[in-house]
């Protein structure tokens, strides 16, 4: 059970949070213009990375805020945490 540094509340048990999958998959602004393939790409297709993943979490049992996490999915070590709308760390 890892610990997550909520950018609003501080370090808490992972069980207080809920994962929201890959980050930075932006909902298309004009869905109707997309082909079925392009829509499926947004809806279902995921990188599902083994290694450094940019992902979304929400502090369900806390401030209920969504934010982003950079986590190595091969060992669950969290490298960075940043708020929604902030630029992802480059390193």
């Amino acid at each position: 059970m890892f610990l997550i540094e909520c950018p609003y509340c501080g370090e808490r048990e992972q069980s207080e949070f809920k994962a929201g999958g890959e980050a930075h998959i932006i909902r298309p602004k004009q869905p109707t213009e997309l082909s079925d393939d392009q829509w499926a790409e947004y809806l279902f297709m995921r990188k599902n990375i083994k290694g450094m993943q940019f992902e979304r979490w929400v502090h369900t049992h806390g401030c209920r805020k969504w934010f982003n996490v950079v986590r190595d999915t091969s060992n669950d070590i969290i490298k960075a945490v940043y708020k929604m709308g902030e630029k992802p760390p480059t390193k």
Binding site: K18, G20, I26, R27, R56, V58, T60, R64, K65, W66, M84, G85
Partner: peptide
Amino acid sequence: LGKLEDYLQTEWP
């Protein structure tokens, strides 16, 4: 509620 918050905070801030 969770779903609405998700859209509100992440897609339509």
